[in-house]
Simulated scan of single mutants.
Amino acid sequence: MTLIERLQSRTITALWRLMGSCSTRTLWRIAGILAPLYTLLARRERRVTRINLRRAWPELTDTELRPLARQSLRHSVAMILELGFAWYAEPQRVSNAIHRVHGRELLDEARAEGRGVIVLGPHFGNWELLNFWLSGHFPITAMYEPPKMAALGPLIRQGRERNGATLVPTTSRGVASLLRALRRSEVVGILPDQVPDWGSGVFADFFGHPAYTGTLLPGLVARTQARVVTGFTRRLPNGEGFDLHFLAADERVYDPDEAVSAAGVNACVEAAIALDPAQYQWEYKRWRKTPGEETDEPGWRERKLYNRRHR
C-alpha cells in the first residue's frame, strides 16, 4: 500500500468517525450544502444519473427530470456521510434513528414456519442501516466483496459486522455459507441490483430495458424453500431519521427458471423505487451490459457452467 493510499484511507476514516458524532438532521443539512458542488464536479455521476432517469421515465420532460436528478445526487451525498453514522455512532443512537418498521411480520412468520428468509436489499435510501437493524434482530449472513481501496476493507467489515452480522466472500464457499444459514431458518441478505460477472446472470427487464441480473436467488430458493422479501431503509424528510420497509416479493422470484426469477427480482426493486424515486442510487450503471455482448467475453460460457454447478 502506497503512502498516498494510507493517507487517503486515514482521512476517510477520520471523516467517517466525525460524521458518526453528528445527528441525521445535521448530516442531511451538510448533504444539502455539498450536493451542488458534487453535482458540478462529479461529471460522470451527474451524466449517468440523468441518462438512467431518462431511460426509466422517458415520458418525463427535462424540466421534470432535472430536479429529480438533483434530489437523487443529494441523497447519494447523504448516504456517503451517513456511512459514518451507521458504522461509528453509538448503537443506541443508530437504533433510535429508525422510527418505524413496516412489514416485519413477513420475516417473523417465515422463521416461525422454520423457513429462512432472503432479504433483497436494493441500493435505496441507506442500505447500511438495513444491515444494522437486521443484524440486531435476526442472525444474518451476507456476502462481502472488499473495496478497491484495500486499506478501508477492515474498517468497512468492522462497521458492517459490529451489530452481529456475518459476512462471507463472494465465492462458492460464500454461497455454501448462505445455504447453511437458510437451512438454519436464518436471514440472508442479497444485493439484487448489482451487475454480476458474465456467466452469473441473465437479462431481465428493469423499467422496460434489459438489465443483466444475478441468478443466485433461484438456486437458493430451490434448495432451501426460503421466503423472499424486499427490504430497504427510507430516509425521512429533513433528515429526521428513517423508516424501514419489508415488502412481499414478486411471486416470480420463486420460479425455477432463471429468467423468470430475475424478472421478479427487478420488479421487487422497482416496487421499492416507486415509494421515492429520488432515493435510489441512479448514478450506478445498471444497464452497462447489453444483450449479445457476453459472446465477446473470453471464457464466459465456462464461467456460467461453473457457477451453475457450484450454486
Rank of each mutant, 00 (worst) to 15 (best):
S72P: 02
T170K: 13
L120H: 04
S76D: 06
G121A: 15
S95R: 13
R115A: 07
L152I: 02
G125S: 02
G174V: 01
H75Y: 05
R183G: 02
G159A: 03
A165L: 04
M149P: 08
I118A: 00
R100N: 09
G164V: 07
E161A: 08
V168G: 14
I118F: 06
A165D: 04
G121C: 13
L182V: 08
V168Y: 10
V94A: 14
G153M: 04
P122E: 08
Q92R: 12
L106I: 02
A176K: 15
T166K: 14
S172D: 14
L152S: 02
R157I: 07
F138D: 04
G174M: 03
V119C: 06
E90L: 15
N131T: 06
R160D: 03
V119D: 00
G153D: 09
T171M: 13
G103S: 02
R157L: 08
R162D: 10
G121N: 14
D108C: 11
K148D: 02
W87F: 08
S177F: 05
T170C: 10
A165W: 01
G164T: 06
R104P: 08
T170H: 09
I156Y: 00
R183N: 09
S72Y: 03
T141K: 13
R173E: 11
I80F: 14
T171A: 06
H123Y: 03
R173D: 11
A112Q: 07
N131F: 03
R111H: 11
E109F: 06
V117W: 04
T171D: 13
R70H: 12
S135Y: 03
A86W: 06
L107M: 13
K148L: 05
L182H: 05
R157P: 03
G103P: 06
I156F: 08
R160F: 02
A112Y: 00
P154T: 04
A89V: 13
L73A: 03
V77G: 06
M149R: 11
H123G: 04
D108Q: 13
R160H: 02
V117S: 04
S72K: 00
S177G: 12
L134H: 04
E82I: 03
F138E: 05
V94E: 09
G103Y: 02
E113N: 07
G159F: 00
N126P: 09
P139A: 01
E128Y: 10
R74K: 08
L81T: 01
V77D: 09
H137C: 15
Q71L: 01
A110I: 12
E113K: 11
S177E: 13
V168N: 12
I156L: 05
S172G: 10
E82A: 01
V77M: 11
A151C: 05
V175N: 07
L182C: 07
I118M: 05
L129F: 09
A151Q: 07
D108T: 15
R111N: 09
R100V: 08
T141V: 15
I156C: 01
H123F: 05
Q71E: 01
W87S: 08
E82Q: 12
W133G: 11
L134A: 03
V117K: 00
G103H: 09
P147K: 03
R162E: 08
N163D: 10
R157V: 04
H102G: 06
G153S: 10
N131E: 04
S72G: 00
V101H: 07
I80G: 13
L155F: 07
S172T: 14
N126V: 08
S135I: 02
N96C: 11
T171C: 08
G153A: 09
W127H: 13
L182R: 07
